[in-house]
Amino acid sequence: QVALSRTQVCGILREELFQGDAFHQSDTHIFIIMGASGDLAKKKIYPTIWWLFRDGLLPENTFIVGYARSRLTVADIRKQSEPFFKATPEEKLKLEDFFARNSYVAGQYDDAASYQRLNSHMNALHLGSQANRLFYLALPPTVYEAVTKNIHESCMSQIGWNRIIVEKPFGRDLQSSDRLSNHISSLFREDQIYRIDHYLGKEMVQNLMVLRFANRIFGPIWNRDNIACVILTFKEPFGTEGRGGYFDEFGIIRDVMQNHLLQMLCLVAMEKPASTNSDDVRDEKVKVLKCISEVQANNVVLGQYVGNPDGEGEATKGYLDDPTVPRGSTTATFAAVVLYVENERWDGVPFILRCGKALNERKAEVRLQFHDVAGDIFHQQCKRNELVIRVQPNEAVYTKMMTKKPGMFFNPEESELDLTYGNRYKNVKLPDAYERLILDVFCGSQMHFVRSDELREAWRIFTPLLHQIELEKPKPIPYIYGSRGPTEADELMKRVGFQYEGTYKWVNPHKL
């Protein structure tokens, strides 16, 4: 086992960053958080920038500027975001240094004079007029057009580079997404736009490419001749908990499936790229999406959770019991969808996408189930092999396979070949997804960000279904809070070829 401390991990990262040409360590950078008073800024962006600063992973002359409508001070920003920093008493001095680099400007999102004030403020910072500028839009999409237009007109660096990070949702359907994309691309070049999907920053999602293309053993079996089906799962054990009003506007397909799960599907299904260059990788992902037809209604199961009468606390409440959810809402909190990649490698292999709230566990994984062994000599005792990439929690890679049961006879039983990170790298604290992705933006690497043509294809696949749901308002199937979801989803999976045995229990190697 390799035991690495946080300091050692960050030392390795620093070495990698400083050796590259793309990370300008000594240049002045300004990180501007648009929507600095909001939840995302408070819980994710400010803490992430602090962790990067604490670990010495930001360029040395980096300033952080918050911008929002609320009249706040840096002290206010500190008060609301610091509880999420997880700072230790030993880091007190470092924390003071961090907040000394912070400033805040209040202004409207659609007022040109406010942006001119913001620009004057940035120019007044040390070497601010020639600094590289990175704008993070932690804002609702309704203000994107006004904000990007004003940034472009008043706040661009004339000497350094300018980059803009856009948070999902990128529209509600193909038409609104196209409108937003066309607007942003009329102001910024594609190499300046970073559409963030934080799932692409997760260690195991990034590991998929290495697993596939750096190991000879997987190449020959990664196709329709050997793989019976692919299941991509995202499960949350909690409901909307008072935030249903926002969720109800989008629903589970827009929230998770059309982005996170579809991105994971691309990494499983794509061909080997010409290189690890950002556009070479994204070219292959677009090719996969172009091979997927629009979702067919007979390959869809929609569910909505109801309270568990035997549960406790939140578990007793259904989705419609959330006071922020519109009365009688038919918005799905669970969806199972089957897609097919219609190309030579994957023809006929079902890709089953499942996601839901208020389920029995927290889990995100990719599961490849292989065909049955031909010419069975073990009297149907063999179960199908599976390769599982567990994204969260407890990152893991393992192969479910058959071995001989101890004893006199040739009785096979299920076991696993474990390729888990935790076994080799004991207690290594890896940077989280937002840390990686923000560092990628500083480096100018777009590999783990969504390109406009990729986004367009993703919406093309799901828009007809979303429009049909909005028009017909089908009643989702009720499922109990804390269950596996509607049984109809299991029946759909069985119908397209997935075999669920229920006889195997994964042993978490992190707890051995």
Rank of each mutant, 00 (worst) to 15 (best):
Y319D: 00
S275P: 00
T463S: 12
L387P: 01
E342H: 08
K405C: 14
V268P: 01
K272L: 10
R451G: 10
Q369G: 02
D322S: 09
Q381F: 09
V337E: 01
Q446D: 01
P431G: 11
L492K: 03
P273F: 01
E488N: 09
L465F: 08
G307A: 09
H448C: 13
L492E: 02
T487H: 12
V306R: 09
D279W: 07
V366D: 02
A297S: 10
K494L: 07
G422T: 11
P350L: 01
L471G: 06
A364C: 08
P474H: 11
N423V: 06
Y479L: 01
E312G: 05
A269H: 01
H371F: 06
E470Q: 11
Y434S: 14
W346I: 02
E271M: 03
L265M: 13
Q446R: 05
Q296E: 08
E470C: 07
A274T: 10
L387S: 00
M493F: 07
E342D: 13
W506H: 04
A364P: 01
T403C: 13
R345L: 10
T324R: 13
R345G: 04
V496Y: 10
L262C: 11
P464M: 08
L466W: 05
K285G: 08
R367Q: 13
V256M: 13
E457K: 00
I389M: 10
E491G: 07
H448I: 12
S275I: 04
V341H: 01
M257F: 11
D418A: 08
D279R: 10
R495A: 11
M401R: 03
V301P: 02
R451I: 00
K426P: 04
E501W: 04
M401Y: 15
Q304D: 01
L471A: 06
L430C: 12
K363M: 12
K505W: 08
M264F: 09
V373F: 14
V286I: 10
D418G: 07
Y305I: 01
M401V: 12
Q304Y: 04
N343R: 02
M447N: 03
G313C: 11
C291V: 08
V306F: 08
N298L: 11
I377M: 14
T403K: 12
D347I: 05
V388A: 10
R327H: 10
K363E: 15
V306S: 12
G375T: 14
D283G: 07
H510C: 13
L430M: 12
D321R: 05
G307P: 07
V256Y: 15
K473H: 09
C443V: 13
L430E: 15
T331K: 10
T503S: 14
T324I: 12
E284V: 15
G313M: 08
P412H: 05
K400R: 15
D372P: 09
V496H: 11
D440T: 03
L320T: 03
G407K: 03
D279L: 06
I480S: 09
K285A: 13
H510E: 15
A274I: 04
R424V: 12
N427Y: 14
D418F: 13
R456S: 12
T331Q: 07
E501V: 09
V295N: 03
P476H: 02
G422C: 08
E470L: 06
G422L: 07
R456M: 06
R354G: 02
I438V: 10
H371T: 07
F351A: 01
S293C: 06
V281C: 12
F370S: 01
E395W: 13
Q392S: 11
Q381A: 04
P273E: 00
V286N: 07
R345F: 07
L417Q: 15
T316F: 08
S452L: 11
G348R: 09
D347M: 06
D310S: 11
M401D: 04
Q468K: 06
A433S: 13
E314C: 10
